[in-house]
Design a protein around this nucleic acid. Structure first.
Lengths: 187, 187
DNA sequence: ATAATAAGCGGAGCATACTCCGTTTGTCAA
DNA sequence: TTGACAAACGGAGTATGCTCCGCTTATTAT
């Protein structure tokens, strides 16, 4: 990679980060970002094929950090499996609320499939979620565990979550309801 | 409503339906529709504030029909609760696959909240789903039942479902996995 | 029938995502 | 150092969703 290209990539990330601090992600256009970065739109798009990918790049560190932290937590369980899972959920929802604008862009952009589902990060997220689900899901195959991880992630995607919040549920209530649903339960 | 306005609305619906038969929904622009309908874009947008709403209008009958049919089925159960639920799921997925392009436009458009979640149709769909879930969900509050209906709908939304299919799961496998997850289960 | 009026029309125009391609520049072999 | 060239640049251009507003027309009261 040429040196100037590397510098431009950083300029883009900086410009985007600054603009996203100033106003809502949805209110920042790609042209705005190029302008503030002091580059042409062509250069912007060569570095990041669309807004979602740019947001993904900006979220990478945060998400990696979250995953690393949670993996540590799950390694040495400090409470019951159920409590452990509920806490995991709560922290995941907390994390998401903090970065909701970037995540919404990623999850609702026209390129969800490639940007979100096909990213290595999604795989990591699924792996983490599987680890969190395993202790509360006896006797299910790996394939089914993966399926449930996918479903859990899907349930908490921005649109669905926003709707639940709008309906009046708090983060905690949502975490509890999800727990009830996912935890192996006998009447 | 003025008579010419009513005629135009029909012209729009016809034009859209025809174009959507010719090529993919995503490959048809609002301008195309206006042109084929023989009206201005302003008129088009006065009738349908965005592409998602137009797709919703085109789906209304189909969905209504599905709901009505399922309500009948659920009224006189012909098999075990579990089987009943799995069959409901299968039919829902079948229905969705048949209309997937319209549904994708509705569920992934920028106006999901108003077009999808806040539509009376979503309420009906939730009610139906609650009816389907009730026999397999002992002892849960109405609020929690509604929550689970929301989650079920969310899990099967176009992005999430497309991903599962892409992963190699068949419609039947997905229905089974979902059933396992939703049906009250004891080890 | 006619005039007044509100309901509706249409398309120019705007914003934004994204592409294309002629020009420039960093890199590296000689 | 310099020449050659791939890599990268940048911005004009395109496509599309959507708005705005001056003009037209159906309706209705007289």
């Amino acid at each position: 990679m040429r040196k100037d290209a590397q510098i431009n990539q950083q300029k883009i990330l900086d410009a985007a980060a600054n603009l996203f601090k100033e106003r809502a992600v949805s209110k920042v256009s790609m042209k705005d970002i190029a302008q503030v970065a002091g580059i042409g739109t062509g250069t912007l798009y060569r570095n990041f094929p669309n807004k979602s990918e740019l947001c993904m790049a900006l979220s990478l560190d945060y998400i990696q950090q979250f995953i690393t932290g949670e993996e540590a937590q799950l390694q040495n369980p400090s409470s019951s499996a159920n409590k452990q899972f509920e806490d995991f959920l709560t922290r995941w929802l907390e994390f998401r609320e903090r970065r909701i604008q970037l995540l919404t862009e990623i999850e609702t952009g026209p390129s969800v499939m490639s940007t979100f589902y096909h990213s290595p990060l999604y795989q990591q997220l699924v792996n983490l979620t599987m680890q969190a689900l395993k202790p509360i899901s006896d006797n299910i195959s790996k394939a089914e565990l993966k399926f449930r991880a996918d479903m859990l992630i899907s349930m908490l995607k921005s649109d669905s979550y926003a709707y639940q919040r709008e309906q009046g549920l708090t983060r905690e209530q949502i975490a509890i309801n999800i727990s009830h649903l996912m935890i192996k339960r006998c009447d």
